[in-house]
């Protein structure tokens, strides 16, 4: 009796995906370690200026941010540079309160190391920056950091 020979399957065996979760978990942990949570939504346009002599800001938990730039929604908020603290537009007079609140939220031993990071758009005029700096001086927040991008060579 004739026997039909079963046709052998020509496709290659399936690749095992058992280690896929491990690979994805590895990626996940990489991103969890290297990134930080986004704290605020920016309402102002900020293009940081460039600098070569930058220092890294250490201890991110001790950094509070002040944003200055032109509002993104220029038709609603105008095109003059504005200050943003936390999640709202603010005035110069709000800064001392903001600094006090930031100081209150930090551990007492860490308070001398609180740094205020100034994230300022490069097209801003110094007038508003100076006002902010004077206000910071008055509220005794003396460590500041002008946030910049690091470049190898500065175009002068």
């Amino acid at each position: 009796m004739a026997k039909f020979q079963k046709k052998k399957s020509t496709s290659s065996p399936a690749i095992s995906t058992a280690s896929l979760p491990d690979i994805i978990f590895m990626l996940l942990f990489f991103f969890m370690v290297t990134t930080t949570m986004r704290e605020t939504t920016l309402f102002v346009k900020i293009v940081s200026p460039e600098a070569t002599e930058v220092q890294k800001l250490e201890k991110k938990a001790l950094v509070s941010y002040i944003y200055i730039g032109t509002p993104l929604q220029a038709n609603v908020y105008g095109s003059e540079p504005r200050i943003q603290l936390n999640d709202a537009f603010s005035n110069i007079s709000d800064i001392s309160e903001f600094v006090a609140a930031e100081r209150e939220s930090k551990d007492e031993a860490d308070r001398p190391f609180i740094t205020t990071s100034l994230r300022i758009d490069k097209d801003t005029k110094m007038g508003i920056v100076t006002d902010v700096k004077q206000e910071l001086r008055k509220s005794n927040a003396l460590r500041i950091n002008y946030s910049t991008r690091q470049v190898g060579n500065l175009k002068l």
Partner: peptide
């Protein structure tokens, strides 16, 4: 999350 590291010129007022 964001990836940007904070860098800048640190000064004392």
């Amino acid at each position: 999350t964001t990836m940007d590291v904070d860098k800048g010129l640190t000064r004392m007022l």
